[in-house]
Design a protein around this nucleic acid. Structure first.
Lengths: 187, 187
DNA sequence: ATATAAACGGATCGCTGATCCAAATATATG
DNA sequence: CATATATTTGGATCAGCGATCCGTTTATAT
């Protein structure tokens, strides 16, 4: 890649990150291009679709979350590892309002630029889940896709201004539902 | 209202219902107008915003769900009443793909055309919840807004093609989390 | 039958993402 | 250093969206 192209690409990513954190993932691509002092066509050549742009932005975070799952697998109890990783996932999405819908769409669409990242993330969650299940600490009737779905649901909740105030509380309710060692913060 | 206007209004509602069940609530208003053999301006005069159109369409269903809550309050056990009403709510939204986001936005925005309907629906759910709580059958740390949020989450799940297959199952998981008499379909 | 108020819809606006292509520019080579 | 070449760029343009304006048509009351 030519040096000037690389510079534009990096600059666009930085500007896009700011714009998205301010306005959510549905921010106008034209706005991003304007704020980066670049033509819309340039943005769209570097990132042919909104998902491609998101993928470039999200990949780092996804990798961090995947790595975090690996650490927790050895450093915490199966139960704490699962719950705190779920909390991290949900907390992370607050930085990218609206990304949940794109992730949910990407997980089943192999053509999507986000597909691979989402699959990896799901696998990381599935490992933590299996570990908790093997220890008899989590329901046996849920799988990695269920965990992905539950995280997506809770993240979506945080995206809705009217429901977000209850998101933390309902995280506890849902987390409790996954675990079999009930009573820790039950009613 | 003039007779021709009423006819157009009714026709638009019928066409919009069909279009939305086919394409979801984000269907183009121009498409609806075209399919109704009417100018876009006419559609927008009868229903100034997409929400106003949705409100007219959804009000009947909302009223039915509210009425259903009233019936269940006297005909079923507090637990069955709550769970089966929740199931009805979630099942209903499958007819209106994407409506969940609009409902979540409307519940806190008194200016929204959907606001009143959503508040009424939440109140109906809150009554069923309180009844179950008074019988010691539901967690005491959730309220009407939480129930609304949980229904919205599960409905949203059903809207996502990739996650919808697990929606029924996760409904059971979440319902189980609300109830205190655990074990009915727990692990 | 006519006057009047209401409803209608084509034209237009600013916006979106997408695409095309002539001009500008970085880089490799003589 | 000069030039040729391949790459990158962004203004112009397109079809689509919801919204609005306003001259025309039409129902209805007198």
């Amino acid at each position: 890649m030519r040096a000037d192209a690389r510079k534009n690409r990096d600059h666009l990513l930085a500007v896009a990150g700011t714009a998205i954190s301010e306005q959510g993932v549905e921010v106008s691509l034209r706005d991003i291009a304007r704020r980066a002092d670049v033509g819309l066509a340039t943005l769209l050549r570097h990132f042919p679709t909104r998902e491609a742009l998101l993928d470039a932005l999200l990949r780092t975070s996804f990798d961090q979350l995947t790595a975090k799952a690996g650490e927790l697998e050895t450093s915490s109890s199966p139960e704490d590892a699962l719950v705190s990783w779920l909390r991290d996932c949900v907390a992370w999405t607050t930085e990218y309002r609206g990304a949940t819908v794109l992730m949910a769409a990407a997980i089943e669409d192999p053509e999507s630029a986000l597909h691979a990242s989402c699959v990896t993330l799901r696998a990381a969650g599935a490992r933590l889940l299996t570990r908790a299940q093997d220890a008899g600490l989590a329901r046996d009737d849920i799988d990695g896709t269920d965990v992905f779905a539950l995280v997506a649901m809770l993240a979506w909740l945080g995206d809705q201004p009217s429901l977000a105030p209850r998101a933390d509380h309902l995280f506890g309710v849902v987390a409790n539902a996954i675990l079999t060692s009930a009573g820790e913060d039950g009613p």
